[in-house]
Design a protein around this nucleic acid. Structure first.
Lengths: 117, 117
DNA sequence: CAATCATACAACCGACTGGTTGTATGTAAA
DNA sequence: TTTACATACAACCAGTCGGTTGTATGATTG
């Protein structure tokens, strides 16, 4: 594994953890997890300006956790589950000595879903 | 579930994700995962001052990811695996394969996912 | 077309972060 | 006790973050 690749992985991990290190952004991910929501609909749910919510969505988008799809004049945000699994496998690695056991549990719980990032 | 408890959980999640949102701190967790390491031994591994590494360890300690145990004049840092599992279950919740079940629980217990930051 | 709604983005502000250096304290060894 | 080593902590600095307001652009509706 070349050094540059490790840097990229670290960049991705930085972005993912940083994106989730804010309760509003975690809540946004939860709310767009099922069906998508427009940025305005999202913003209505929080006691802050539209622009603030928009910036939160932008952070999630840059981290790859959310994608937007334009529908008419609205921009619908959807959660991307792949990066979440990436984080979970990173955490599994961090757990170290328990990594195999945990991974086995994950595979069981994930069931139909593929496990690689 | 009272509102204050959700706030505490959010505080914990904020601290955990924030603590892991730095590659040096993730590396520290990796390095102390098996046997512990003194702060100086840790600091030798990074191209930054001892004080900087010490502050990273302090952040991990505040988040509960690392504990220190004094041995002689050294302070040995150990990784705590519990909080890592806490994060992993939070991520599992976010992933949405359990979204319906989780949503039902949330609706029963609180109803208000919206977090005024 | 004009008017309106949804989004984007820039500029600004206070607080926090990640690093530095310097100094103080505690423990061990001579 | 003196010396040296390991840790703690305060003060400082530049950059980032989470929020604000204001303005501009895009798409839908009258």
């Amino acid at each position: 594994m070349i050094d540059r690749m490790k840097g990229l992985l670290d960049d991705e991990a930085d972005a993912l953890f940083q994106a989730l290190a804010d309760r509003t952004r975690r809540d946004i991910v939860r709310r767009v997890a099922g069906e998508g929501l427009s940025v305005s609909d999202l913003a209505d749910g929080y006691d802050m300006s539209f622009a603030a919510v928009q910036k939160h969505v932008a952070v999630l988008e840059r981290a790859g956790l959310v994608t937007k799809r334009r529908v008419g004049k609205r921009q619908i945000a959807h959660a991307e589950v792949g990066p979440l699994r990436t984080i979970r496998s990173m955490l599994a690695e961090l757990e170290g000595q328990w990594v195999e056991r945990v991974q086995r549990i994950d595979d069981l719980l994930a069931g139909d879903q593929r496990a690689g990032s």
